[in-house]
């Protein structure tokens, strides 16, 4: 096939949009892992909840944007509740216990959603403002995809500023490295944990909310997302936010171009990319060595 510049450019844009979902999802996972040392196996479940919460909110108020914001808030609160009532009890035990708790949640919640919403998935429509695409010759500029890229950039910038410029961001960065010392400086780390968990889960919910128009919104939609988010985080380096962002963008491009050139490899390609990066750089792109 002849690779015209339009195709390549479009492929890049699609890849960026695809990467945007990865970035949102993985940065949340990375924050949770970095701060709480919890491998959140329910991350995809919160992604799913984000999509369903968007559906519910849109059915109630009819506005996509309100729906997304409501979804992020609702799911963050669910996350906070989960963290405060169940997860918190398991800190300081072996890492496997919080992992299993999250895993349990990832089985339990989809079934609850199935009971409430039934087996037929729900429809979340694209906002009318962002429907369709602008065509320039053979070049399609899909509005929603471009919105995703912009959203990702805004969220990353906001996250960066939050982490760098606010006290709570500073505490999160510090607690990611040494939670005991932070505690010994008069800071109630457990409250920071809740905030960090909410933030991570909120990002997953945002990813689910904006993905909802593009994919089948069903109770099990998050199952593979957990694994893929972990792949992104591993590529970027465990616990590194910048790594999660870069990892997500790389994967987006990989999947986009593999889909063009060797489509039957598209699903495997993300794992191959991970393997390749781990061989070249075992701690991931931005991972620091010797993090405890």
């Amino acid at each position: 096939m002849e690779l015209s510049w339009e195709i390549i450019l479009m492929q890049v844009i699609m890849g960026l949009a695809l990467g945007a979902i990865y970035v949102l999802l993985a940065s949340g996972l990375s924050i949770i892992f970095g701060l709480l040392d919890v491998l959140n196996f329910a991350h995809g479940t919160f992604y799913m909840l984000g999509a369903y919460a968007t559906f519910v909110a849109i059915s109630l108020c009819g506005n996509f944007w309100v729906g997304i914001i409501a979804a992020v808030i609702i799911v963050s609160l669910i996350g906070a509740l989960f963290e405060m009532t169940l997860l918190k009890r398991l800190y300081g035990t072996d890492q496997i216990y919080p992992l299993l708790m999250c895993f349990g949640l990832s089985i339990f919640l989809p079934d609850i959603i199935k009971m409430i919403f039934g087996l037929v998935g729900k429809v979340v429509d694209y906002p009318s403002l962002l429907q369709g695409a602008t065509f320039v010759d053979n070049l399609i500029l899909p509005k929603y995809r471009i919105f995703l890229v912009v959203l990702m950039a805004v969220v990353l910038l906001a996250l960066y500023l939050f982490m760098k410029k606010t006290s709570i961001g500073m505490i999160i960065r510090a607690a990611t490295r040494d939670r005991l010392m932070v505690n010994c400086l008069g800071i109630n780390v457990s409250r920071v944990w809740t905030v960090g968990f909410m933030l991570g889960v909120g990002l997953a919910a945002l990813a689910g909310a904006v993905a909802a128009p593009m994919v089948q919104t069903i109770p099990n939609m998050g199952d593979e997302m957990t694994i893929e988010a972990f792949v992104v985080v591993v590529i970027g380096g465990l616990g590194s936010l910048g790594g999660a962002a870069l990892g997500g963008l790389i994967l987006g491009q990989v999947v986009s171009f593999v889909s063009l050139l060797a489509p039957d490899w598209s699903n495997v390609s993300i794992f191959l990319t991970m393997a390749l990066i781990l061989v070249l750089r075992p701690r991931g792109l931005f991972g620091e060595e010797g993090r405890d």
Partner: peptide, 12 residues
């Protein structure tokens, strides 16, 4: 899950 990446070649 993502079919958008196929769109450019289909349109072409």
């Amino acid at each position: 899950r993502d079919f958008s990446a196929y769109v450019p070649q289909i349109l072409a």
